[in-house]
């Protein structure tokens, strides 16, 4: 390791009698990398072992099955994994929201970047849910004005990305604008909408600023990862289709 020596001489001619020992004479600093050359301390390894075994067992638990690869890149403005995530969060989230408020969520929207990993065809384990959603974010329902919904639409069109949207939201980009239906009804400018999203996006994450300062907000206290795990546990085979919920007019 290269060593750089910096000597600092302290002028102390007037002051030598005013000090008290001990005096700091030398400081040495370095960084020690933790590499495989260092033998693991057995006592520590032994202590970790039962925790690890328990985590591994849970992580390898098979929750469900998918006949196809689930990825975020198999459509133009939608994806199998995005549709699945938004739809399952809507399903689970709306059940809670409805039971607590008597109202229904209009649709769910998340961010493309929030899908952290795909799921390979075959068994789905807890590990898949952790890889898909490693963060601790929770579901939140935001009441948005029609103006904010218009901002949301503008964001989707300019971003031109497959941001996850639930099937209640149908947006078609046309030659001279767009056609939006929510719950099979034309977009109504005189109405407010309840949108399900994450508490990360609520605060303007991924520049989704239309989620900030909503008319009202309702935290479901339900972690997104737990929502996914619960849905997988309840469904032994995952069925998902690309249905053109967000598309460009051909």
């Amino acid at each position: 390791m290269k060593k750089f020596i910096i000597h600092i001489f302290i002028i102390s001619s007037l002051l030598s009698c005013k000090n008290k020992p001990p005096f700091l004479t030398k400081i040495e600093g370095k960084q020690l990398p933790i590499t495989e050359g260092i033998k693991s301390k057995q006592e520590i390894e032994d202590f970790i072992k039962p925790f690890k075994e328990s985590v591994d067992k849970e992580m390898n638990t098979v929750l469900s099955y998918t006949p196809h690869n689930l990825v975020r890149t198999d459509g133009e403005l939608e994806s199998s994994l995005g549709n699945l995530m938004a739809d399952l969060c809507y399903l689970k989230g709306n059940a809670i929201f409805n039971s607590r408020t008597g109202k229904n969520i209009d649709f769910a929207m998340f961010n493309y970047g929030g899908i952290r990993a795909g799921i390979t065809q075959g068994n789905i384990t807890t590990q898949n849910a952790f890889n898909l959603m490693p963060f601790e974010n929770s579901l939140v329902v935001l009441e948005l004005s029609s103006k904010k919904i218009e901002e949301l639409v503008y964001y989707l069109i300019t971003e031109n990305k497959a941001h996850p949207l639930s099937k209640q939201f149908n947006l078609v980009i046309t030659k001279d604008g767009y056609n939006l239906k929510i719950n099979n009804k034309p977009f109504d400018k005189n109405k407010t909408y309840f949108v399900l999203t994450s508490d990360y996006l609520q605060t303007g994450g991924d520049n989704m600023n239309f989620f900030k300062n909503s008319i009202s907000s309702y935290n479901l206290d339900y972690k997104i990862r737990n929502t996914i795990i619960d849905y997988f546990k309840e469904n032994d085979t995952i069925k998902v289709t690309l249905d053109g919920r967000f598309m460009k007019e051909k």
């Binding site: 001619s13 001990p22 005096f23 004479t25 030398k26 600093g29 370095k30 960084q31």
Partner: peptide
């Protein structure tokens, strides 16, 4: 990270200053 501090109680040592080796 490792930082070593060396002290000396010799009162004459102070006038020699301290060195920092990184």
């Amino acid at each position: 990270g490792r930082i070593d501090f060396y002290f000396d109680t010799d009162k004459n040592i102070e006038s020699k200053g301290k060195s920092i080796i990184v």
